[in-house]
């Protein structure tokens, strides 16, 4: 159900955006060079579909790995930062301050140091989705669920694992939303990296289409990015729902 919703929501938005472009094209009588007609877009789609699909999968793979790394790091640091100790406060303050800097601006340095291979794309994707994830995880993990935790505290049964379990369980919806949302950031990070200097992925293909001023290719690329991301986010939400349901059914 979540998956369907994501997909048809994307279709509605994409079709509205494309319809708007065609409205401008025919309203202002723009040439096919500026905005290609529906037939051109269709032909480009059939011609480029498999190559772009493979590019999107390449980008998606990097984004997913980057996101998984970010999630693990954010959980690790978020769990440390939840504590009301000096190390927890330091972690929180550092996270809030570092995330204020636009990480994407560091991308050129990464490319200079690490070259234009997969490692640079992965690192930029991970960095871009890591900080928003971290802030959410710290926020969730530092908020006590007093009405549940009280018993375990006063009876001396509270352990950090139990505390994390209680807070994660009580905020499973929020965590799922944050993780699904961070998929967009990871994808955006990877595409930005590919725009800047990489030699593979859909961002790289879009950059080439941009040099050729070929809007039809860009529209096809955007469609494939959108539909792939919608399916991925929908799957993440379904997984979150199943984890919550499975956890509650134990």
């Amino acid at each position: 159900m979540l998956l369907h919703r994501r997909i048809y929501q994307f279709f509605i938005i994409y079709l509205l955006a494309v319809a708007f472009l065609f409205l401008i094209k025919y309203g202002l009588d723009l040439s096919d060079y500026v905005i290609p007609g529906p037939v051109d877009v269709w032909h480009t789609g059939t011609r480029e579909f498999s190559r772009y699909f493979s590019d999107v999968m390449n980008t998606m793979m990097v984004a997913v790995i980057g996101q998984v790394i970010s999630i693990f790091l954010a959980l690790l640091v978020g769990i440390t930062g939840r504590q009301a100790t000096w190390i927890g406060s330091f972690t929180k303050a550092a996270a809030y301050n570092v995330q204020a800097y636009p990480i994407v601006a560091l991308a050129p340095i990464i490319f200079i140091l690490l070259g234009d291979g997969i490692i640079s794309r992965l690192l930029i994707a991970a960095m871009i989705c890591y900080f928003p994830l971290l802030l959410s995880v710290i926020g969730i993990m530092s908020e006590p669920i007093s009405d549940i935790e009280h018993f375990y505290r006063v009876t001396g049964r509270m352990r950090w694992q139990l505390e994390v379990k209680i807070r994660a369980f009580e905020n499973m919806n929020k965590l799922t939303t944050v993780v699904a949302g961070s998929a967009t950031l990871a994808m955006a990070g990877t595409i930005v990296a590919e725009f800047i200097a990489a030699n593979a992925g859909i961002g790289y293909s879009i950059r080439i289409a941009l040099f050729q001023s070929d809007l039809a290719k860009i529209l096809i690329a955007l469609f494939l990015i959108g539909i792939t991301l919608s399916v991925y986010q929908g799957l993440l939400e379904v997984i979150g729902y199943l984890i919550e349901k499975g956890w509650a059914a134990k």
């Binding site: 009405d147 549940i148 009280h150 018993f151 379990k165 369980f169 509650a248």
Partner: peptide
């Protein structure tokens, strides 16, 4: 020990 009436048990 202090117990109060709005406490909850974990839901899992």
């Amino acid at each position: 020990l202090y117990s109060y009436n709005l406490e909850r048990l974990p839901g899992w």
